[in-house]
Design a binder for these strands. Structure first.
Lengths: 226, 226
DNA sequence: TCCTGTGAACTTCTTCACAGCC
DNA sequence: GGCTGTGAAGAAGTTCACAGGA
């Protein structure tokens, strides 16, 4: 996962163990959501095939994914819905609530701040910050937008490790620098920019237009071969 | 075959636009962005190492990615920035503009509608639709929110193939059904739901909280091993 | 020399197929 | 009979290392 910069292989990095593969990790929340619909429908157990169909993936993949968490199924029967929900949540680290700070109170920052999908997954938006004075003081969701200067205090107060960057591309690097200085060690970046951060800081990037471009590419290929 | 611009016979280009892997496809827009900063800085050429460092990836990966488009570099020199920009854009299908329709004018739909990153990538938001009467008639960006009922007309008028679903999870499947009925063949789904669509329809899903959960997972593992 | 382009090695992810248990 | 868990095969993606042109 970690990339060693050019050349020498890093044995220390290789020895760092990772229990659950990232590809699996990305699907666990999906399984959780499907399991909740099963629970709501009153199902006590479900099979890997049912889970797979509802999640739109291959049944073998479901079983392999779940096997990374342990052996929580019963042969000939399937999985206990409630127990499996608990085990997946535990595997994901949802046993605790993570406070995050969102920097940028524009459309995207506001959308994230009011996004209902975080709370049930153990993520709480502790603060929304912005440098634009016209935005500071307004309210998104039930959180007041505060100036970026309070970053250090906010990070310290809520023991924040994770931040979301939802500012324009030009401002992203400076924001990232301030986040790192404040002690944040994981950044989710929505800005169209490549962030330079120290190796101990983890960055994930979401580019809203990349997904559309991939769809457009395939549409074009459809048109070409038609 | 299609028209090959200019006199230089380039058999590689003709066959190269064929098989671009999705993993590569997802990085091409990133390279485009980096190249633009190089162009803005006045650079005429750049090497795979420079490109890789600015993009935060391995140099060999850059070269392999670009090789899927054809052989546009010069050994011993590097790549011509402007020419490479053109070739990547062409490979991505940015030679034409794609009209898309966004369904859902909530925070996320609004954020997407006003997102500045689409236009430079050949994506135009042709319409924003919503079922909520209180939202219909309002304006996001420079587009008026219209009722979902005009979907068929909008899709037909703009020859729309790609749609974005930014509605609550409960409404997502019905919206998807209507999109498919209207003739849309690619859907970008932001709703927390698994969409069931016919095989000729392509769906990509973006889950905003999954990314945060993956970061939280790794944070937890850091804490455990500390 | 420098740098690209690419076969080959390597790693990661996916899928198959079946042993083992209910 | 049904279903899980998993070794092994297969596919996809990444990285290495070097041949070969500028």
């Amino acid at each position: 996962m970690r990339e060693t910069p050019t050349g020498t292989p890093d044995p220390a990095a290789a020895s760092a163990t990772r229990d659950v593969p990232d590809a699996t990790l990305a699907r666990l929340p999906l399984y959780l959501r499907v399991l909740q619909t099963f629970a709501d429908a009153g199902a006590a157990t479900c099979s890997s095939v049912e889970l797979a169909e509802a999640a739109g993936v291959n049944p073998a993949k479901v079983r392999k994914d779940l096997s990374h968490l342990g052996s929580y199924g019963t042969r000939g029967v399937g999985y206990d819905v409630e127990y499996l929900q608990y085990q997946i949540a535990r595997g994901l680290g949802q046993t605790q609530t993570w406070d995050v700070v969102i920097v940028g109170a524009g459309n995207l920052g506001s959308a994230l701040s009011t996004y209902g999908g975080f709370a049930p997954r153990g993520i709480r938006v502790a603060a929304v910050l912005d440098t634009d004075p016209s935005r500071v003081g307004s309210t998104v969701g039930d959180v007041e937008v505060r100036p970026l200067d309070v970053l250090d205090a906010v990070v310290a107060e809520h023991a924040i490790a994770i931040a979301v960057v939802a500012v324009p591309g030009e401002a992203a690097q400076e924001v990232a620098d301030r986040l790192v200085a404040a002690g944040v060690t994981s950044i989710l970046n929505f800005a169209p920019a490549v962030l330079q951060v120290p190796p101990h800081v983890q960055v994930r990037k979401v580019d809203l237009s990349v997904e559309l471009q991939i769809l457009a590419y395939h549409e074009q290929r459809k048109a070409e071969t038609a």
